[in-house]
Amino acid sequence: MSVGRRQQLLYFLALHRTGLLVGLLAAALLVYPCLQDNPYTLGLTNLIAINAIVVLGLNLFIGYTGQISLGHAGFFALGAYGSAIATVTAGLPPWPAIALVALLVGLIALAVGIPVLRLTGHYLAMATLGFNFVIHTVLLEWDEVTGGPSGFSGIPSLAVGQWAFDSEIRLHYLLWTVTLLCLLLSLNLVRSGVGRGLAALAGDETAAAALGVDTRQAKIKVFVLSAVLASLAGSLFAHSFGYLSPDSFGIFTSTDLVTMVVIGGMGSIWGSLFGAGLITVLPEWVDLFETYKDFVHGTILVLVLMFLPQGLVSGLVDMIRIRIALQRTKNAAA
């Protein structure tokens, strides 16, 4: 009887593992500000939340459709400056502005994606890098609108009625709620038939097409989805910090985002959270990393891609899965 109970429990845990993990993470984040009320640390975890949103979308694009983008800091910038201009210059209320900007960025991604996603490999990397470069230059040069090199300040905080998200603790709850929602949506997507089609596409385009996956359309859809997530993260970034500088959206930000994806691992949604966390925190932990940040990130990127091309976390997970399966065969044979 007790064995039956135990098996039932294990079955329940296995069946609802994703939901339970998300629940666990949500609970941990709920109590986190009670244990840690240092505004600096909270500011750092808030930044992780914002980066995680971009990385989730980018990982869907890189890890699930097998493409590459070195331009997502561009979409991040469009979201951030879009929200800033919409609320400060045009005087729109912040919440509808976020939705409107996300919609516009989605359309821009569609317009960029349709021609650019005909390319693959290095060419795609160059094209997206070029896109990022164009956005960055526009931010610098068009100073009547973007404030130019001196940045854009005075962006209002988000608020629900009189309740303004203006302290680190309040932002913690807002940002992590959005991040968890995005996490949940991504997890749902990859566990569906559509997600399997995307995984197939990342594995082998010809085979995926033969199984009924519209490869061209799938790439564009995921590209647009990842751009919309980046835009959403950008808007939250603008409203959280109140100040934007073009330096935050250069091509090195794009490579940092790709490094986060690679650390987390291709096609690993949970890994994305880890990658975003590690790369955001790393320069803060060790001073050396702050000075030579780009070198350190570059080295990490090269080492991971050389030894674990599927990415750090998912590469290790794959290795463990293979070990376990091989062990089981051996036991079965013995």
């Binding site: 997507l189 038939g193 559509v194 399997r196 089609g197 199984l211 009924g212």
Partner: peptide, 11 residues
């Protein structure tokens, strides 16, 4: 993956 067609198309 062989059942991609039956799994629904809408993202």
């Amino acid at each position: 993956c062989g059942l991609t067609g039956q799994g629904g198309q809408s993202m």
